[in-house]
Amino acid sequence: MEHTDFFEIGGKRLTSRLFTGTGKYGSDSLISSVCESSGSQVITVALRRVDLDKSADNVMRHIPAHMTLLPNTSGARTAGEAVRIARLARAMGCGNWIKIEVISDNRYLLPDGYETVRATEILAKEGFVVLPYMNPDLYVARALADAGAAAIMPLGAPIGTNRGLKTEEMIRILIEEMDLPIIVDAGIGTPSQACQAMEMGAAACLVNTAIATASDPVLMGRAFGRAVAAGREAWLAGPGAVATLAQASSPLTGFLDDPGAAS
């Protein structure tokens, strides 16, 4: 079947709406197989100081060439640090996408909305395709849109918890109110949860931990790819009618049939 539903973002035309990550794998050598099995076309990486003591395997070796790289600003505690990391990431020559992640609370790892808005504003002006990771708050989402974000990435649950769409109602509001694509990031633990997010109208899901820490990441990657595609199709198809409401004994529109009451 010819693919007709494209996700256009940052000048790219994606057929897969599953974004994956490269963190937490038992072995980075699994990454290329997961890219293949999941069908994902966007993958996140982080930027770190080189370890001067041991020459580590470079993660880039395992990322297939066709993948769009989405560097994150993990480690940034302020807007200034996020901007610095973003500029360094772009200097790597792998495109201009950036996932802004500003976290200064190491206990809950929740993103700082104010700093995220500030970083988004600066980086969008510098021509980055900015995808900010955020707590699903409508006011922050609007500020991010005004600041020039290309999409909004609300968390479903705190990073790495695999607890599912704990913020479902707030994400639903973002989907309803925002014109920008909503990409659910963080917290999705199972394919059914990713599917649910897509059925709600999310534009995409970013799943890292749940795939990387599965017993069989390649199989789990495929399951997520299919779940995201299924949820998307369900959204496009539109839900069917829920059981017709029972006819009450006194209908609300009965007066319309009563010639005495109608004019």
Binding site: T244, L245, Q247, A248, P251, L252, T253, L256
Partner: peptide
Amino acid sequence: HLEAMARRAH
């Protein structure tokens, strides 16, 4: 289906 619409609207 006006009755169903009315119930939903209500």
